Simulated scan of single mutants.
Amino acid sequence: MAKRRGNAGGRRGDAANTIAFQGEAGANSDMACRAAYPYMATLPCPTFEAAMGAVQAGKAELAMIPVENSIAGRVADLHSLLPHTKLKIVAEHFQRVEHCLVALPGATLKTIKTVKSHVQALAQCRNFLKKHRLQPLVHADTAGAAREIAEDGDPQIGAIASSLAARIYELKVLARNIEDADHNTTRMLVFSRDEATPDWRTVQCMSAFLFRVKSVPAALYKALGGFATNGVNIVKLESYLSGAHFEQAQFYAEVEGHPEQRALQLALEELAFFSEEFKPLGTFPAHPFRRRGWQAPTRPGT
C-alpha cells in the first residue's frame, strides 16, 4: 500500500492515484476519501459535477460523492447527474461525521462569539451553540469556513469543521464531537470510469440502477412485483418527476444482489417488461457497515 501524500491535490500526472470530492481541503468528504483510500491523493472540486467530471476527463481515478445523511436525509444534487453520467458506482462508504469547534490559536470558548459553518453543520450542533451562547453564521462550506477564519484572524470567530480542516489551516480545536446526535453518519458513493467486478459468491453485493415506468395504471406495482416474488430486497427507491408536464416518474433504486444471481435476473426481467429507459449504474460490494448477518450463497444461482 502506497504512503498517502500530505498535499490535498496530488501530484501532476498522478491521476491514477487520485480521488476527487466536492468541497475544500479538509471537508468531511476529504476525510471520507482519506479514510476509505488512504493511499490516494485527494482532489478538491467546487461541485459534484466537477468531481465526477474530473474522473470522466481522466484527472482522477475515483470520485466520492455523498448521497444521504442519517440526520439530514438524501443529498439531492447528485440525482440530477445520474441520468447523464457515464461513470459507474464501484463502492460505498459510511463516514461518521464528527464536528469540531475550531478557532485561531489562543482563542477559547470564552473569547468566541460567532461560529461559521455550513447550514447543516450548524443545525446538527444546535444544542452546543445554544449552551455556549454562540451566534451561528451560515457559510457555504465547513472547511471553507475554517480557511476563512484562519485568513481573517479574528479571535472572536470560530468555525464548525473537521479536525482535518483544523490541521490543514493551523487552527486550534476547542471542542470535539459537538454534534447533537451520536449517529450522525453520511453514506458516500464512489464513482469510476470502469465497472467493479465483485464475486457475488464470496461477498454481499449491491446493484444500483435508474428506470422509468410506463405511464399506465399500476405500472410501478407490476414493475416491482418481480423483486418480491424472487426474494430480492429493495434497499433504496426514490422517485423524481420529469418531463415538461411532469407526467412520468423516474426512479433510482438500489437492491441487494448481483445481476448474475438468478433471483435478481428474474426480477430485472420483470422490471424491464413494465418499465422503460432502464440504466444500470453499477454493482459493488456492500460496505461492512451493512453486511451484518449476510452469508455466502450455498449453491450456484441462489
Rank of each mutant, 00 (worst) to 15 (best):
R292H: 07
H84M: 05
D30G: 08
E276K: 04
S29N: 10
L237H: 07
L266H: 10
K222I: 03
A244I: 12
P46H: 05
T298K: 14
R292Y: 02
V97G: 05
L268D: 02
G9S: 10
S242I: 14
S207A: 11
M31E: 15
K116Y: 10
K59N: 09
S117W: 01
K110F: 00
S117P: 02
R34S: 11
V173E: 13
A123W: 04
S215H: 09
G6S: 14
Q204S: 08
T47E: 02
A296N: 06
E260A: 15
Q156G: 11
W294E: 02
A150H: 15
Q295I: 08
T185V: 12
A2Q: 11
Q95A: 08
N69I: 01
A296E: 07
L189G: 01
R96S: 09
L164D: 07
R212E: 14
A8E: 13
C100I: 11
A143I: 13
N127A: 15
R126S: 13
I157P: 00
T114R: 14
D182A: 08
P83K: 06
E92S: 07
A181M: 03
L241F: 06
F289Y: 11
H258M: 08
E270N: 04
G257H: 07
T108C: 07
K59H: 07
A72L: 00
G13E: 01
L81H: 02
C125E: 03
I160R: 08
P136E: 04
A249M: 06
